[in-house]
Design a protein around this nucleic acid. Structure first.
Lengths: 120, 120
DNA sequence: GATAGCAGTATACTTTTGTATACCGCTTTT
DNA sequence: AAAAGCGGTATACAAAAGTATACTGCTATC
């Protein structure tokens, strides 16, 4: 699945809005991003800690997703020069704010289920 | 990509919240769902109309996504018994409300870009 | 000195998602 | 009677996303 949203139908929306939605989607899609963010929500975590908290994730996927989240400015990776080095991941403030999007999803989702059952 | 969110880390959140986020994600992910919804936002549309409004979508994908959106209670498919039959797609009220989620994404996305450039 | 933990990487593979191309039965227009 | 529009389906294929399994160099403990 390519990540563009090149549709004429949205051309009348300001392009920055499309970009903004795209940015948000990039942070939310994929099987493991939400679990990883859930693991970080109460504070800093190390690689192995996250791995243990998320059943069935492989180190390959965890590594890949952490890199992507870091690149997108959602999390910050810090290397502490202890011996041996310890590495910690934590949200950026932008990253922490993605919760507002999740909140709106929860609100919509709950309401949606109510509507579904009304007519079923 | 499997669609479960079976993570221990979210187990302390009420399960209904996880389900709700999942429901919202199902409506938003994939390359064509947003374009299709954008096409429906100003009113009813017929299959070929949507197809024309979205450059490069194949009828196969359009058909597949419309079915999925209908199954998820986002859009409604109506068969009018004209001769020949005409078929119209439109949002359900739940479907229309997904815009609140998109709005929160726009808000977050714009703010996020501002933060990124501040530190870059 | 073997074993285990840390923070990952490498390689090969399967599954899911999306594309390309052609076609169907029906009706209206030319 | 041929061509084009409607609302799709069928088949085959390519690309993206995710899995399985093994391994690396480092340190610290048993």
């Amino acid at each position: 699945m390519k990540k563009e949203l090149d549709l004429k139908a949205i051309q009348d929306c300001p392009n920055s809005f499309v970009v903004a939605v795209n940015d948000a989607m990039n942070v939310l899609t994929g099987k493991w991003k939400l679990p990883i963010m859930a693991s970080l929500i109460f504070g800093k975590r190390r690689f192995k800690e996250i791995e243990r908290e998320i059943p069935k994730i492989t180190p390959r996927m965890l590594s890949k997703e952490l890199k992507e989240l870091e690149l997108n400015g959602i999390i910050k990776r810090t290397v502490h020069d202890t011996i041996p080095v310890t590495i910690e991941y934590e949200f950026t403030s932008s990253g922490r704010n993605i919760k507002t999007v999740l909140d709106s999803m929860v609100e919509w989702g709950l309401e949606h289920r109510k509507n579904i059952f009304k007519r079923a």
